[in-house]
Nucleic acid binder design. Structure first.
Lengths: 343, 343
DNA sequence: GATGCTCGCTAAATCGTTTTAGTTCTTACC
DNA sequence: GGTAAGAACTAAAACGATTTAGCGAGCATC
């Protein structure tokens, strides 16, 4: 059984292909197709189960009603939730989303961009990798709208972005730890040159400085990006056990690190918060359920997804009208501190 | 800046469109295009950054090198991991994947099937909803390969499936609980008529019967599907607190329920495993990290993804060769019991 | 010097739509 | 009775590729 095409419908209904097209696209009235013909065509189409071929349609119109979503890793809770929100939002605007994971690799990201471009997606929502700015500029040059999420390029303000206010979030977290009396606050972060992580790290340093609390490199653990799960876990275990009572609090800068951190703390049987207070950037089911419950800086994931989508739709509407390389400050949403038992 | 098309390349290189096409598809030698022309075309294509339009290509060839993946909810850890595996596997075979969530709703699933069909995906990997068999048969009738994952239709053996051996998994879990001396084993499951869940439930009943342990409806809690997260949590809290010492073990039949279960247990301050042993079908980061660690029946997610993909690729190769409605018993993979502190 | 081969390439059809520019009837109007 | 103005459709080009059939030039063969 082959698929039925518009000409099958036309033949069966005894009208031209154009007429069928008009009827299927609600242009029948505008094109003054008679009531009877409209009904005839609609019936035939229904009976034969006609579904327009979107490839042909996309080829002709240049619009696929599809947006490309590029995340770091779809199996990570943060991105999976974000992806679901964006999928749901897209549906509201009658768009489909195609998504893919970069694993934070520039080359893989470029490949994905190519793939999506070849598939003629109408717009992009991207969690960029470090050196992706040039490739993204190229998309914009083809007047394809792009909105970054979660990360951004401070030196490329012509690429709009929606993300959490990383600086503010970590600043609040650090302030709170200090308020609670912790003075020897360790920081565990992932190695990266991306701005959003620098914002987080800078906030930590700035707040400590503001409170005249000495900072030392020995308080900061940077886990290399290419570490395996086990390798990273090991390093955190090493760091925490070596630090011992030199630290009284630890701030994990990502969800992923926080989960490993919990595992390390469990392994070392460190008492939280008596021996060590724990705070993590970004929430996770585990943090709510662990004993003790872990305090977090909670990103407004749904809001990020919604705003990114709204922003993209806005740009899609202007549809290539060469919206003169506008400068858009990144949209920064506030992350709340959710205080639980760990601090 | 518009996209460059094959005719742009042809014009600039001073050859015909056909020649460019042959060169781009490595058919140049077969078509006896000269070395110089090949190089000329390749250079021009590279300089102009030519990327073939996949819509046009797909329209002409009928192949999009894309597979559709339909899961219940991409933000669920199980499906997110499965999706990532399938994405990675697909890349090995040079296929792209488009995915979408049904939220376990038949109508939504049908819509997605339509959408993917209109986009001419070459094949499907589907986590089906209850009444989707007919719609899937229709895809098969169009000779589009389909492989089910995680769930199956026992009465439709012509639809291949790859899933865990649910019966065996729950049977092993129940056996182990009995071995350990638990006699009043509660079951918490989600309301559904789907076979894979019945397999799980039947295993529980069968094993208890085999051991002549009385079963009672009061030991089984069925959470209605449309329950909100909070509603479901409430029901589990109610059930556990009402059951009290009438039960000495509880078996959660899904990952999602297990997480809620942990939350309920924490709330009720039930001592695990002293007051209550806990076992859950399907693993989750939380179960490894919770105190005490929670025992699980661990599904081989990567293997499910790999086998499903391999099976689909096999069928894609036969490419419409009307592989006479073969009967395929579902592939059932063994789930291991991971014993942790909770039993 | 006609025939046939091989070589190296191109013309044109095709996939399934959308959309512009007509075409063919009626009816209206002076 | 001739023209203009709708009404109700249709023909054909276009989108960007792939693919089949074929064309002209050069050479070998008899």
């Amino acid at each position: 059984m082959k698929k039925v095409s518009i000409s099958d419908i036309a033949r069966k209904a005894g009208v031209s292909v154009s007429t069928v097209s008009f009827v299927m696209n609600d242009k029948a009235v505008k094109m003054r197709i008679s009531r009877e013909v409209i009904e005839k065509v609609e019936n035939v189409a229904r009976e034969m189960g006609y579904r327009p071929n979107q490839l042909a349609r996309g080829l002709r119109t240049g619009k696929t009603k599809t947006i490309g979503l590029i995340v770091e890793n779809i199996s990570n809770a943060f991105f999976a939730t974000l992806a679901k929100t964006i999928e749901d939002e897209a549906k509201k605007y009658d768009y489909k989303v195609v998504y893919a994971s970069t694993d934070n690799d520039d080359d893989k990201a470029r490949e994905l961009l190519n793939m999506l471009s070849q598939r003629q997606v109408d717009g992009y929502i991207i969690t960029p990798t470090l050196n992706l700015a040039e490739d993204i500029r190229r998309l914009q040059a083809e007047s394809k709208p792009v909105v970054l999420i979660d990360r951004y390029f401070p030196q490329h303000s012509e690429i709009p972005a929606v993300l959490v206010d990383n600086y503010e979030g970590v600043a609040r977290g650090t302030e709170r730890l200090i308020e609670k009396g912790y003075k020897k606050i360790a920081l565990i972060t992932i190695e990266t040159e991306m701005a959003h992580m620098h914002d987080r790290i800078n906030a930590y340093y700035d707040v400590l400085n503001r409170h005249s609390i000495p900072v030392s490199d020995s308080l900061v653990k940077i886990v290399p990006y290419n570490s395996s799960r086990e390798g990273a876990l090991d390093q955190i275990v090493q760091f925490l056990s070596k630090a011992g009572s030199d630290i009284d609090a630890v701030f994990f800068l990502t969800n992923y690190l926080g989960v490993l951190g919990i595992e390390a703390i469990k392994k070392l049987q460190i008492k939280v918060p008596e021996q060590l207070a724990v705070l993590c950037f970004d929430d996770n089911d585990i943090f709510r359920l662990y004993t003790p419950t872990i305090s977090v800086i909670k990103q407004p994931i749904a809001e990020i997804g919604q705003q990114a989508m709204a922003s993209l739709i806005e740009r899609l509407k202007q549809n290539g009208e060469e919206v003169a390389a506008v400068t858009n400050a990144p949209v920064k949403l506030i992350a709340d501190l959710v205080a639980r038992e760990s601090i």
